[in-house]
């Protein structure tokens, strides 16, 4: 009994010891698309090497990530839903929002193209056609940045999706990867950010159906969590990360990240667009 007790205490000490050993660390709440695309695996080691600050990324949908931050459980938030982010700032949870990078959304669909939208450049028209043919469509349904963009696009297409949704519209309530897996299994259309799509390996019969519409633009922003709301926030370390991200080194690193020779994200901290 005694040896077991000692063993347990030892284990707890070891685990507890991990935390202070990495005292120079911050928690970043971010989105599944940045994690699933592999961007963090590429840029974070560069940052950590330079500053010695350990960055812990908790990847959630944008809505959930913002909730995590509202509870004070992260120091920096790095997401892609500008309207939600600005509301977040207004509520006083975030200090200041900075643009970091963009990529774009693409409409993914089966090569058989039952809705006849392949090659279109008007996303609204493509959605109208999908709705008219009731071709299978997978929605994230998780209040993520991608999900809110999708809802905006339905609105632009003049479709009241709440009223129009039927068995063809699959609301799965999961992350980007899960949505792509589902679409791959069902040969359905799905809206994805380009980064996640490029790094996605289980494509099956899927391909890009629609791209290039300027309404598919996808801007990422970063904010420091307001230390006045949550005094435990590591404001100083968080600011170092933000400054690096929107500074020349971070911007270069983001621009360098490629999959199969394709650049996934385009740095635009200075505010320029394509």
């Amino acid at each position: 009994m005694l040896t077991r007790r000692l063993f347990c205490v030892g284990m707890l000490l070891i685990l507890a010891g991990v935390t202070p050993a990495l005292a120079q660390s911050i928690v970043v709440a971010s989105t599944t698309s940045t994690q699933d695309s592999g961007l963090f695996d590429y840029i974070l080691p560069l940052f950590e090497k330079e500053t010695g600050i350990d960055v812990k990324v908790v990847a959630q949908g944008t809505g959930q990530a913002l909730d995590t931050v509202r509870r004070g459980d992260a120091d920096v938030v790095f997401v892609h839903a500008k309207a939600q982010e600005e509301k977040f700032i207004q509520e006083g949870f975030g200090v200041k929002r900075s643009d970091v990078m963009y990529n774009d959304f693409v409409l993914i669909g089966p090569k058989s193209d039952p809705a006849g939208v392949s090659g279109m450049t008007d996303i609204a028209a493509a959605l109208v056609s999908i709705k008219a043919k009731e071709a299978p469509f997978v929605s994230r349904g998780d209040r993520s940045g991608t999900h809110s963009t999708e809802l905006t696009l339905w609105k632009e297409a003049g479709v009241d999706i709440e009223a129009a949704k039927g068995p063809w519209y699959k609301d799965i309530g999961q992350g980007m990867g899960a949505a792509l897996n589902t679409a791959s299994a069902m040969n359905a259309y799905v809206l994805s950010d380009r980064g996640t799509w490029l790094s996605f390996r289980n494509r099956g019969d899927l391909a890009i159906s629609v791209e290039g519409d300027k309404r598919l633009f996808n801007q990422y922003g970063v904010m420091l969590v307001n230390p006045e709301k949550h005094p435990d926030v590591k404001a100083e370390l968080g600011q170092i990360f933000i400054d690096w991200l929107i500074g020349p080194e971070g911007q270069t690193a983001i621009g360098e990240y490629e999959i199969d020779g394709q650049q996934l994200f385009f740095p635009n901290a200075s505010g320029q667009r394509i």
């Binding site: 812990k56 992350g175 990867g177 899960a178 792509l180 897996n181 289980n202």
Partner: peptide, 24 residues
């Protein structure tokens, strides 16, 4: 745990992550 790389990433959360990356 938050599935933080190198800190709280376990076998099961890695499996979930790789599944969502399509690395079946």
């Amino acid at each position: 745990g938050g599935n933080i790389d190198g800190f709280t990433r376990t076998m099961t959360t890695t499996i979930a992550l790789e599944t969502s990356r399509g690395n079946l």
